[in-house]
Design a protein around this nucleic acid. Structure first.
Lengths: 211, 211
DNA sequence: TTGTGTGAATCCCTTCACAGCG
DNA sequence: CGCTGTGAAGGGATTCACACAA
């Protein structure tokens, strides 16, 4: 049913899901594409087009049932289950992520932490013990890790990524400021704060110079 | 000279800049669009088109001078100067960002830290003292803050953002999982890890179901 | 009447292909 | 020659507009 879905659509589906969760909390029963558009910073036509890629969930003249659409969106996005995640890199970023409440609450369960610093290996975070990197493959296999959060320095990132993929990891959230080389079957999402800051400074600079 | 530049172009310019820095370290004098394309995960035509929005920096038959293009890209992206940044929210994320070495090294100077937790106010991070939120406007004005990094809970984010904009802030890097309402003249970059994780789980789920 | 689902039209980004300069 | 800069072509994504179902 689903052919080639643009990344922009996926981002919007995430927004819709968040809006639906809000609506449910507010007690809404149904919602129109118009309402979802307003909350998601798009247009009603866009909302309908996005959803139409996956089926027709609405009722003409009425809109969408909030609970029903929320369930469907969770299926579509693949968040109707728990994902087992390994955190590689127990530095500042790793620790911030580990404590980030949205993770656990949204179905991402951290089942292992790895760090190469011998002084960190063995210490405990929450219920987990920090492991050495040579355990990586074993951890991934034994714990059924599917996602890896890579929060290590740039020099170490590629090697860890390759090993993780080799061991069967299915996706990577990458904080290292490099383009990882992995097989095309393994999706990588890059978190690149410097790039986002540069987007800001560009936008500000341009705005000033065009006036 | 520059009209409407798509966001995708800006992201690529950031990549080119990083590639040029690498090339300079490697001692390269000139570089072709082909070479930049390979390093930046695009095509040579795309590189030339991207650059052509801002002028013609290359020499036909030769390529681009690495140092020259690097300087121009820094001007274009607005990173040929220091940006004064305030960090709002001294929690885990804030602390990770504060220690993030790429910030300082790329021209983003943190000049103020704000947190609403009274037990944190007054303590020192590096050379800075954490301030209470009611100082926000004064800090922004007196320190000439242009960028704000918003790392506060979702409920507090909108109010802080509005006040920061009111006080003259020119751009926001937003970690709160909400769509900030600010005037269109103030660019906002959202860092949304949940959305990126959902993009991963979507990609993995689809891949499995289409086989 | 209301609001979805969807072909058609539009718009914008990317790719092509080549003229032209070094 | 080699490689840039750029109109023109192509391809995708968004928007439009309306038939149709509730």
């Amino acid at each position: 049913m689903t052919r080639r879905i643009p990344a922009s659509t996926i981002r919007r589906l995430s927004h819709y899901l968040r809006s639906l969760e809000d609506l449910e909390r507010e007690g809404g029963e149904t919602v129109s594409s118009e309402e979802l558009a307003t909350r998601g910073q798009t247009t009603a036509a866009q909302v309908r087009k996005d959803l139409s890629h996956f089926g027709s969930f609405g009722k003409r003249g009425l809109g969408y049932r909030v609970d029903e659409l929320r369930v469907r969106l969770r299926q579509i996005l693949g968040v109707d289950r728990v994902w087992r995640v390994a955190l590689i890199g127990a530095g500042r970023i790793g620790s911030a992520l580990f404590e980030y409440p949205a993770f656990e609450s949204r179905g991402y369960e951290c089942v292992a932490i790895v760090d190469s610093d011998p002084s960190k290996v063995g210490s405990r975070w929450g219920g987990l013990t920090i492991q050495a990197p040579d355990e990586l493959e074993a951890l991934i296999r034994h714990l059924g890790v599917e996602l890896v959060i890579l929060a290590v320095p740039a020099q170490a990132a590629q090697e860890i990524a390759s090993r993780a993929v080799q061991a069967g990891v299915k996706g990577i959230l990458n904080f290292a400021p490099i383009r990882l080389k992995v097989p095309p079957s393994v999706p990588v999402e890059d978190v690149n704060l410097v790039m986002q800051l540069e987007a800001l400074s560009f936008a500000i600079t341009q705005r000033g110079s065009e006036a």
